[in-house]
């Protein structure tokens, strides 16, 4: 037992701050991609021909039934063995995006199914094609109702982005690990990292509340 000493934390702020920045970058990129891919998957599952629909459903089923860490290992350590060499940072972003896209797709699918059929009929009768109707009329309206549920997914995504530290991406947890290997003070620096995640989480929750209010007003 060596006791705790938080006074050394500020000295390592440059490194920790850099990690924090990368956590924000990776989470934001993955959040955007997971929403876009989620909408895409939802549309394919609902409307594409069986040749496309069933593989997408199989993929969703596979990714919902397995842990993110396993998916990350498959993408980073696995693909390179069959000649697909994706840099660590992109492996991390792809794994996070696909993992959460699958959950988002389920939410969007329910949102689209809940939308009034009259919207589609009206657009079609005004001369919109089937896919133009889905993309310009159905999706924008359906997505509004899904903001709270997708927001919860994004809160989970921010926390789970810590997992990409396992493939050596220099985000917050990995930066903490680097500092710990130098200082031998895991408790202080993991607690610091935890506090920073907590802060990021509060900010994200405030942002999501703002978006929810805006969406409510424009409905």
């Amino acid at each position: 037992m060596q006791g705790l000493d938080f006074s050394i934390v500020p000295e390592y702020w440059p490194l920790i701050g850099k990690g924090l920045w990368w956590t924000v970058v990776i989470s934001t990129a993955s959040a955007v991609l997971s929403v876009l891919a989620g909408i895409g998957f939802a549309l394919l599952v609902l409307y594409a021909s069986p040749v496309v629909r069933y593989p997408v459903r199989l993929f969703m089923w596979l990714f919902m039934g397995t842990p993110l860490l396993l998916q990350l290992f498959l993408i980073y350590f696995g693909l390179v063995q069959i000649g697909i060499d994706i840099p660590a940072i992109w492996s991390g972003i792809i794994a996070l995006s696909l993992h959460f896209a699958v959950y988002n797709a389920d939410i969007f699918r329910a949102g689209i199914a809940a939308l009034d059929k009259g919207q589609t009929e009206a657009a079609r009768s005004l001369g919109f094609g089937a896919w133009r109707t889905r993309i310009y009329i159905v999706v924008p309206q359906a997505v509004r109702g899904t903001v709270p549920a997708v927001g919860n997914m994004m809160i989970a995504l921010l926390k789970e982005s810590s997992i990409v530290s396992m493939i050596g991406i220099a985000e917050l947890v990995h930066s903490a690990q680097l500092v710990i290997s130098e200082t031998y003070r895991p408790f202080e620096f993991y607690l610091t990292a935890a506090a920073l995640y907590y802060g990021l989480n509060l900010i994200l929750e405030a942002v999501l509340r703002g978006i929810e209010r805006k969406v409510e007003l424009s409905r």
Partner: peptide, 10 residues
Amino acid sequence: GTPALIQIFL
């Protein structure tokens, strides 16, 4: 509000 991974490490 904090990642499970960090809770395990802590």
